[in-house]
Amino acid sequence: MSESNISELLPQLKAHMAKAEEAMRHDFAAVRTGKASPALVEGILVDYYGAPTRLRDLANISAPEARLLTIQPYDISAVHAIEKAIIASNLGIMPNSDGKILRLPIPELSEERRIALVKQVKQRAEEGKVAIRNLRRDANDSAKKAQKGGELTEDELKKLLDDIQKLTDRSIEDIDKSVASKEKELMSI
């Protein structure tokens, strides 16, 4: 590892941690809260002429009302395949089709379902934290190798490891805030 790689270690680590947090938040958007959000269905894979295709690539998804999603396929012949994929997705939402547009009424969540969704969110958050910790471990290893290679002094290594830990703590704190916000959103009626 060269001097320039060491100087890029923290910015790269910060970028990777931000990507891990963003992926987790995107997954949170797909968790149903009783409000219509296109993110609920956009990642569903539809068998479109034998190829698994994301719903967002096959149709226009919108939320014209707070408790309704509409899905208008670009190819009307895909309506049945989309309907089948939504039913198979275990969202707990039955689509209504008029042959051209699918409507998904979003029902109220039961208390039991809300608690299950909170557990799902916390599980995903824990996966995000593990990803952040793995990034920290890799950055620490790179810093220690650079120190052994003579590119860093002992003091520089200590400061770099402290900075890596601060970035890790900040990312985990951000994840905890996101979880608390999503939990509050899920548990509010």
Rank of each mutant, 00 (worst) to 15 (best):
S7L: 06
S7G: 02
Q12T: 14
A15Y: 03
M17N: 08
K19H: 11
A20E: 09
E21H: 13
T33R: 14
G43S: 06
V46F: 09
V46T: 10
G50R: 10
L55E: 04
R56D: 10
D57A: 15
L58E: 01
N60E: 09
R67E: 00
L68C: 07
Y74D: 04
E83Y: 02
I86F: 00
M94Y: 08
N96K: 14
G99P: 07
G99R: 01
G99M: 00
I101W: 00
R103T: 14
R103V: 04
L104E: 13
P105C: 09
P105Q: 06
I106R: 13
I106P: 09
P107S: 06
S110M: 01
E112C: 11
I115K: 14
L117V: 12
V118R: 03
K119Q: 03
V121Y: 12
K122A: 12
R124S: 11
R133E: 08
N134E: 08
L135T: 01
L135D: 09
D138H: 14
A139D: 05
N140K: 12
K144S: 08
G150I: 13
L152C: 13
L152Q: 12
T153K: 09
E154Q: 11
D155M: 01
L160D: 03
I164P: 04
I164R: 00
K166Q: 09
T168C: 00
D169N: 11
D169L: 02
R170C: 00
I175V: 14
I175R: 00
D176T: 07
K177Y: 08
A180I: 03
L186S: 09
M187L: 10
I189M: 06
